[in-house]
Structure formats: structure tokens, C-alpha cells
Amino acid sequence: MPATELLLDITLGVLLLILAGAALHGTRLYTGIISFIAFGLLLALVWARLGAPDLALAEAAIGAGLTGVLLLSALGRHADEPAQPGSAVRTLATLLLGVLVLILLLRAVLPLAQGPQPLPALVNSQLEASGVSHPVTAVLLNFRAWDTLLELLVLLLAVLGVRQLQPAGRPRPGVWPLLQAWSRILAPLSVIIGGYLLWRGSHAPGGAFQAGALLAAGVVMLRLAGLLPLLRWENGLLRLLVLVGVALFLTVAAAGAWFGAGWLNYPAHWSGALIVLIEVAATLSIAASLSLLVVGERQELGR
């Protein structure tokens, strides 16, 4: 490995640790959130360096982007709290415990380098039959499609759970003309890039979750700029969008069980098309769910 690459990797690793510490031990919540977002972005870089572009995309879009926005919007609802001085004993105890866990985990992880890994070869050998040419998409939407179906349900439950809390609406800050102008330019871009990532997913890194997160980012921006009406669960079309991913997935699965070879078993020549169809529906659902989580409200309060 060239020295410059090594230097980059070491810098990334050290920065990650510092940012993680800042996110956990920052005295103010706001500092913690900003450190967390920066941590997510750097982590995405680390995944890219490790040769996992799918993870990098997901981490940047969901881990750093949407989680960050969710945390910031939670902070917005939260009353200001006085900065808490960190106690030295607590920091020391955390450090000690952290080092202990680290040693235990290292002892468990280090021998894994020689472990047998039959699956990557197996996935590649069956790639032809899966209907897509990117191994990650093949695993997510064909070999282990049941996991992905249940993950879509997890997202649906997150939306439902937040709905039960019945968060009160809050006054919006005045709309800033520059924000409106910018979001008019950025929102179509998010649609194009999201669509591209979705399409790319069948043969290269990308896919429904990343595309959905990008679309949601566009929706959130438009909503914050006051260019979209209220996103309410009571709106039937929005509910349809949230549910369409799971519903379509289940329909395909059940149709396979009823007419075809079995549960979640795609017909041989249709698997590519079906996977793309499911991915489109899942992208819409993910985008709608994430937007509802961030900017969904029951009613708007006056300023």
C-alpha cells in the first residue's frame, strides 16, 4: 500500500474516533448532533475505502443525512437545556469499560480473517439465475428477499409508532426566498439522482433505500421551503405511497405461492423485471415514509 493511502486511512480512523467521542461526550446536544452527522459522512468514506460502495451510499444518505435531520428536528421541539458539565469519574469509567470491551471484541474478531466464506462465491455462481447482475441487489431482492420485505415493515412500523405519539405541530420559521429558489433547483436534481441510483441498483451499487432517502431529502426541502402542502397520514394517496412497497412485495410473493413455484419464487424469465418493479415501489414507499417521519404533521400551528 502506498504511503499516501496509508496516511489517508490513518487520518480517517483517528478522525472517526474523535468525532465519535465528540458526539457522545459533547456538552451541548447541538454539538453532539453536528459531530454525529460529520461522523456519518466520514464513516461513509471509510466504507468506500473498504470497498463497500453500497454501504457507503446507505450510510451517507440514511446514517448521516436522514438521521441527522431527524435528530435536528427533535432538537427543534426540545426546550433548551443547560449545558451539563461532564463528570471526570464517568468519563474515566466509560473509557475503562470501552477498552475492556474493545479487547474482548478484538480477541473475537481477529481470528475471523481465516474463517470460511462460502457465500460470496455461491452468490456469484447463482447471479445469472437471480435476474440482476449486482450481487448486493441479488441478495437483497432475490436470495434473501424475505428479510427486505420485513425491513420494509420495520420502516412502516417506525412511521406508525411516531404517529401514535401524536407530535404537535410547531410554528414554521419564516420562509426564506433564497431557500425557495434553491430548493426549486435542488428538488428536481434529487429526483434525477434518486432515479439514477434506483436504476443503477440492478447492475451496480445503488438501490431502493439510497434512492428513497434522496427522494425524501427533496420532499423535506420542498416542505421546509413551504412549496408543498402539509403531509398528513389522513391523505389517502400518501398512505397508498407508504404501503405500496410492502403490498406489492407481498402480492408478488403470494402470487408465486399460488400460481408458481413457491413463496417469493420469481418466475424464471420475469425475475429481472419483477425485481425492478418491486424496487420502484419500495423506493416510493421509503421516500414517503421517511418524509412523513421528518416533516409529517397533523396540523400546522400559527406563527
Binding site: P118, L119, L122, V123, Q126, N142, F143, R144, A145, W146, D147, A261, G262, W263, L264, N265, Y266
Partner: peptide
């Protein structure tokens, strides 16, 4: 037993 999607273990669920 049912191999979901017709994929035998270890590939499938």
C-alpha cells in the same frame, strides 16, 4: 421445511 424463493441454504432463508 421451506426454502424461501427456492434458494437452498446457505444462500436463502
Amino acid at each position: 421445511t421451506l426454502a424461501i424463493g427456492g434458494w437452498r441454504t446457505p444462500l436463502g432463508i
